[in-house]
């Protein structure tokens, strides 16, 4: 017992006091900024492993980007990744970062369904489904609830049963073999319910896009409430995105 208390004391404070303003350590690859510098744009487009870069104007689709950083290494005067981890949004087009535009990525309040703020702003229980996820996003979603990030303080938690959940968090590119379990799980969640896509693989298929082993038809039939890009997602990206979603109100 004494030993346990001693250990407890030695931990000090581990939690991040304010997850909305804290700075991430190191050289994190968050929201990119694209300058208007002219470069060999054909070479730039060609080097990207997931066709995330398009031209006229030069743009990066964070829903496709696997954050490998190679474009920034090859063209440092053109592309630079910032430490800004707030890159989740509820509008697919907002994930496209264009040259010369240095705005933050935000949620569009008009697209947030009314029930979300009404029912979930103080408590949101989520069911996670990994559908071909490589276990990196899953590890980071688990980390959201650890003593450092402590997402539970906002009433956001993962639950075991879809019947206890208010929504689903999908990771992975959605494999053919998971298509049916995913649908069954979603159907088991009572209304109203939300869908969050966590990670580039879930948003676009990522590096797996075009694989014949995928079946992404679930996404054609449902409205997505939140896109959280990353490879894997950073816990702070996820937590901030969800907080915005459940707290942001119209006008």
């Amino acid at each position: 017992m004494i030993g346990n208390i001693k250990i407890l004391m030695h931990q000090g404070k581990q939690y991040i006091p304010d997850v909305t303003t804290t700075e991430v350590p190191g050289i994190f690859r968050g929201r990119p900024e694209i300058s208007t510098e002219p470069v060999d744009s054909i070479a730039l487009v060609d080097l990207c492993p997931t066709d995330a870069i398009r031209l006229n104007p030069v743009q990066i689709d964070l829903g496709k980007c696997v954050f490998c950083g190679e474009c920034a290494f090859a063209f440092p005067e053109k592309i630079k990744f910032t430490l800004d981890y707030k890159i989740a949004t509820n509008q697919r087009e907002s994930l496209i970062v264009k040259e010369g535009e240095y705005n933050n990525i935000i949620l569009n309040p008009d697209l947030i369904r009314e029930e979300i703020a009404k029912y979930f702003s103080g408590s949101l229980k989520l069911r996670q489904v990994s559908a071909g996820g490589d276990n990196s996003c899953e590890l980071e979603l688990n980390a959201c609830g650890n003593v450092n990030f402590d997402m539970g303080r906002f009433g956001i938690e993962f639950v075991a049963s879809p019947r206890h959940a208010d929504g689903i968090v999908i990771t992975g590119p959605i494999t053919e073999n998971m298509a049916e379990p995913l649908q069954i799980c979603y159907d088991a969640i009572p209304h109203p319910k939300i869908i969050i896509l966590a990670g580039t693989d879930a948003i676009s298929g990522g590096i797996f896009a075009g694989s014949p082993a995928l079946n992404r038809s679930f996404l054609n039939n449902h409205k997505i409430d939140l896109y959280v890009p990353g490879n894997p997602i950073h816990p702070l990206t996820f937590i901030n995105g969800v907080l915005e979603l459940i707290r942001k109100r119209k006008g």
Partner: peptide
């Protein structure tokens, strides 16, 4: 198992 099959060797 098999639910996570993404066809990665083929890719």
């Amino acid at each position: 198992l098999g639910y996570q099959h993404r066809g990665i060797e083929n890719l």
